[in-house]
Nucleic acid binder design. Sequence first.
DNA 1: CAGCATCCTTTGCGATACTG
DNA 2: CAGTATCGCAAAGGATGCTG
Lengths: 141, 141
Amino acid sequence: MEERTLELPTHCQRTDLPDSVVQWDSREDCEVRKQLDRLADKWTLQVLALLDHRTHRFNELQRRLEGVSHRMLATTLRQLERDGMLIRTVHPTVPPKVEYTLTPLGRQLHGLMRPFVDWAESNTRTIAMARTAFDARATGQ
Amino acid sequence: MEERTLELPTHCQRTDLPDSVVQWDSREDCEVRKQLDRLADKWTLQVLALLDHRTHRFNELQRRLEGVSHRMLATTLRQLERDGMLIRTVHPTVPPKVEYTLTPLGRQLHGLMRPFVDWAESNTRTIAMARTAFDARATGQ
DNA sequence: CAGCATCCTTTGCGATACTG
DNA sequence: CAGTATCGCAAAGGATGCTG
């Protein structure tokens, strides 16, 4: 059976090379991987969710996330800001007041995750059962 | 302005609690987060992509991924198998021959990532520009 | 209040070596 | 060929304390 052009996500695929070199280039260069890493980090998606609902202040986010460290929230927000997913507005008052608002791009990104989230939710049971079965097989014999 | 039920992904949201306790519970219990973590780990998505194309043997995958360690490929495959995303078939020959095939569930999962991948690809430039602008602001002043 | 820098623990993952 | 176990390094991330 002859092999042909892979039906892989094209992003980091190098169609000019033999398919032994498919790679998205797991770490470097690959924008898709980087975005995926961002999304899957501990807080990004939750921040997106909260900000998609409405603008929040820093401490407001921190209280709602409950468990996030000051440091990681700051880091997460900075990276999202850097990528153009949110706008950081500093009100020059004392004490300072900083507000975070999603950009349209940020809303798009969050919106894209919905199908995935729904899928994960609706397949929780299925997956749990698969695991139980697997573990039984592993332990049993 | 009164706050109301959050328009957050509902999965790990606890609507029975005040919204200070939104949390998906970043680590434990949350199936969505776990799946997201899986997807974003270094190799899972690439494995899904290859297997969505066709059944592969272990070493075949390893060669194609080029860069994956034996250990991590085995781990990745095991977890996908445990979650019911793929089937591992052992042919009782010498030397052994083991084949990995996606289940319908696994195909669904991979399919779900396509919109995201497309989005990430088509916004690479936009994001890069946002970064350049951000870094300029940061350095400049 | 917001956000850096410092320190220290935990996790991820590659390298390697051994088994059926 | 496929899989497991042990080791060690490097990155992620939490705690805490200092600054405007």
